[in-house]
């Protein structure tokens, strides 16, 4: 390696400091939430917790894990991710493969592409979306959370571009050897696209796990809420003016509802699965981008 100039060293130093600061900014809130979740509720209410738990205890985790609504919602979310991931990935692959072919191979390819692409730019808006889902009879079922977004067009475009970057000759030679499209897709394209697929799996999982708004609008009962929708209901800033005329029973719930340690524990448990998935897919994620750029 060449001897670096002074300027180069300074640049590198500043760079490291800057990146470290960015990383700290990202991780600080997570550590804070973790610290609050392990703290005593009065210490948390008094704002005494920053990065280390005060009055360490596990009671909020015990409470959260015994909270039937939390568990129900957790299961709904798992179901949603499992179903959503299968449907999304299947349709993404089936849409991306033909669209990655030449125009001469697929009649009307560009029309199909535009048909899909328009949905990225234009959407019907909230009310038509709601009415469509309702008229289709999907309300209050887990499919309402999956089918309206069954074809993630953005993912299709990523994958079809990845397919296009694969050398055409591989497919052609397999074709000459007698392979059909199913074989070419399943035995050649998919194994070669692992990095791209892993990235899309990650996107899809995170997307489904974190979505909360559709759950709120399309589910008819809180019992069917996915986890993030449930979390939103406990985290939302309450309109304090409503308490002006609240009855005594409602008021008595206030101190329980405002418990920050409990909220933090639930946030952390909800974030844990994604935090656990990331490291395993991260390596593909990095590689996917690099591989793509080299081949391009």
């Amino acid at each position: 390696m060449h001897h670096r100039t002074f300027g180069g060293k300074v640049f590198e130093g500043v760079n490291h400091l800057f990146l470290a600061a960015c990383a700290l900014l990202c991780i600080f809130p997570i550590i804070h939430v973790l610290a609050v979740s392990f703290s005593g509720s009065t210490a948390a209410a008094a704002g005494q917790v920053t990065l280390w738990p005060v009055e360490f205890n596990l009671s909020s985790y015990k409470y959260a894990l015994n909270n039937p609504q939390f568990l129900t919602s957790f299961l709904v979310s798992l179901e949603r991710v499992a179903l959503g991931l299968s449907v999304n990935m299947l349709l993404t692959i089936f849409a991306a493969y033909p669209l990655s072919k030449e125009r001469s191979d697929l009649y009307g390819r560009n029309a199909y592409s535009w048909y899909l692409f328009i949905t990225i730019i234009f959407s019907g808006g909230l009310i038509p979306w709601y009415m469509t889902v309702k008229q289709l009879g999907l309300m209050d079922s887990v499919w309402a959370l999956i089918l309206p977004g069954a074809v993630p067009v953005f993912n299709v475009i990523i994958l079809l571009n990845f397919f296009r970057q694969l050398p055409k000759e591989i497919g052609e030679s397999a074709f000459i050897d007698g392979a059909g499209h199913w074989t070419i897709l399943s035995r050649i394209y998919l194994p070669l696209s692992k990095p791209a697929l892993a990235t899309l799996v990650l996107f899809t999982c995170v997307g489904h796990w974190n979505a909360w708004f559709d759950g709120l609008i399309l589910m008819s009962s809180p019992h069917h809420y996915p986890l993030q929708t449930y979390l939103q209901t406990i985290m939302i800033n309450r309109d304090m003016s409503l308490f002006t005329t609240a009855s005594q029973e409602e008021l008595k719930m206030l101190s329980e509802v405002s418990d920050r340690t409990l909220k933090s524990a639930q946030i952390f448990i909800a974030a844990a699965p994604i935090l656990a998935v990331y490291p395993f897919l991260q390596k593909y994620f990095m590689k996917g981008i690099v591989v793509g750029s080299v081949k391009g």
Binding site: T244, L251, L254
Partner: peptide
Amino acid sequence: TAGKVGMLYGQHWNPFYPLQDAKNK
């Protein structure tokens, strides 16, 4: 709750939140 404030204008429901927290602390 941390005992930094001694007076405030409010309404009848304040004891339930957050003054009860202050009392607990």
